[in-house]
Design a protein around this nucleic acid. Sequence first.
RNA 1: GCACCCGUAGCUCAGCUGGAUAGAGCGCUGCCCUCCGAAGGCAGAGGUCGCGCGUUCGAAUCGCGCCGGGUGCACCA
Length: 574
Amino acid sequence: MNLFSDIRVLVIDSLDGMVAEGALPAGLKFDNVTVEPPRDAAHGDMASNAAMVLAKPAGLKPRDIAENLAARLEADARVASVEVAGPGFLNLRLAQDVWRGVVTHVLAEGAEFGKSNTGAGHKVNVEFVSANPTGPLHVGHTRGAVFGDTLASLLSFTGHDVTREYYVNDAGAQVDVLARSAYERYREACGHAPEIAEGLYPGDYLVPVGQALKDKFGEALLDKGEADWLAEVREFATQEMMALIRDDLAAIGVTMDRFFSEKSLYGGDKIEAAIKALDDAGLIYEGVLEPPKGKLPDDWEPREQTLFRSSAHGDDVDRPVKKSDGSWTYFAPDIAYHYDKVTRGYDQLIDILGADHGGYVKRIKAVVSALSDGRVPLDIKLTQLVRLYKDGAPFKMSKRSGNFVTLRDVVDQVGADVTRFVMLTRKNDAPLDFDFDKVAEQSKDNPVFYVQYAHARVCSVLRRAEEASVPLSDSANLVDPAEFALARKLAEWPRLVEIAAREHEPHRIAFYLYDLAGEFHALWNKGNEFPALRFLQDDDPAASAAKIALPRAVAVVISAGLGILGVTPATEMR
RNA sequence: GCACCCGUAGCUCAGCUGGAUAGAGCGCUGCCCUCCGAAGGCAGAGGUCGCGCGUUCGAAUCGCGCCGGGUGCACCA
């Protein structure tokens, strides 16, 4: 149930009625008619722009349309009053029983409230994290992990068939570097001093891998040349790293449905098939790229290469798929991977990348557009930097020394719930400050706490209600403006979910929950001043039951919202 | 030089397929516990929505051009 779309249906029906009676010309499109919560509560519960958007095509004055429409809307039992305001807004006030009904409805629906079937029959693939299997996940990956996982949950909530997928870059030069780094740790385990050359991965996390190699191979690899051990060590170390990464993901509650190996694209004809598909579309040719203007690399030389005409699908320039020596570029397996996704029958692809990969967006979109004939939309979401603060000062990370803050560090210090919520307190494309001290704080400055506290307060009330043998009733008794405001906020939940899912913006859930908690805390405190507004009415179980329905409904929605975010709702916070 | 992202209150940021007098938190000022959890709440001050054109009944939102900040820019993955 979405109260806003319900009322919009009422508006559209009324407009149809006007058409039937000749008050409006036939053939009007009502697509642009909206029913929304007004920014200013003084404008009522809902506002519609119907009269304004229809005035021109209908050749009528907005206010004339509005007044006719208003009279029709007022005939509906749900509508208490309608006023025509400003240039032709319709400001609706709904009957008090509608808001009481919202509470009842929320309680009846429980965790189902706000779910929708807008995504029914839609297969969506969300690819995220996809970090190189060369070490543990760090904070930047954490943001992408939380964002992707939450978006996936949100899309499930709206009925989509969602696949969470991780693309494993297990075929490039970086896994050779991993293998060499692990080999040094292996030598170390065998009693030799390791030589961690410049360019190798220095992190301690490879020490146990070295030990494991020794356990497996004994000292058999020591005398061999690199050519003889590289493949085996690479395979082993990559497996170990993926195990590490899976554990990291599990630590913040992320479970992938599928890990797609880049290596699996080689050897068969996967890449060849993908390139052929492009070729069949006339998008592959041999050519020489122009040097970039204004920034000429020192070693520029014209080279004839196999190129993908990505510029035909929105990219700025064409992109090489083969190097001048005939081997594939890194881009070629990316093409094959997205081709694979397209052929797996998804209706929508979503890639979540770090902002430093912004330069690849157009070419990948070009690939999907070309290979799906424009049928499969690809949305690429970039997640901006996470800036760490500790004791009020920026926390420096140095990749070169292997001294970076890992996902594990963060989760160990502040917990998965807090980490997840905080990662969504900014829009994905805005930089995020992550302050270890602020985030651990239990005060209203900390949005996670603020929302959790609201939920815990409801649970506290319910515990007391049980002690006082207050029966639970789904019928709410709302009288005060603060109570109606809260019910109104609850009614926005399904609409908010719909928008967040459509825009692929899970942060909206976090912001909504913060607002909802704010309305709840306001009402709670009003009970200090006006005892009649307290949820528990002394020695009056029936009155208490009617008052408790509203906070119970709040808890239902907070719980559902936090569920999408992957955060546990706290029942007490002592 | 080109592309993408960002520019909203002193600070950090929201802002709904374009809607009315642009919001929140922090900070600042002043208040509220014989009272369900004050780990909370209420009120006040504070803004040329970077700038300029344009589209529109209506622009923070859409288009174009500037200015400022970030990121990325040939066979490296």
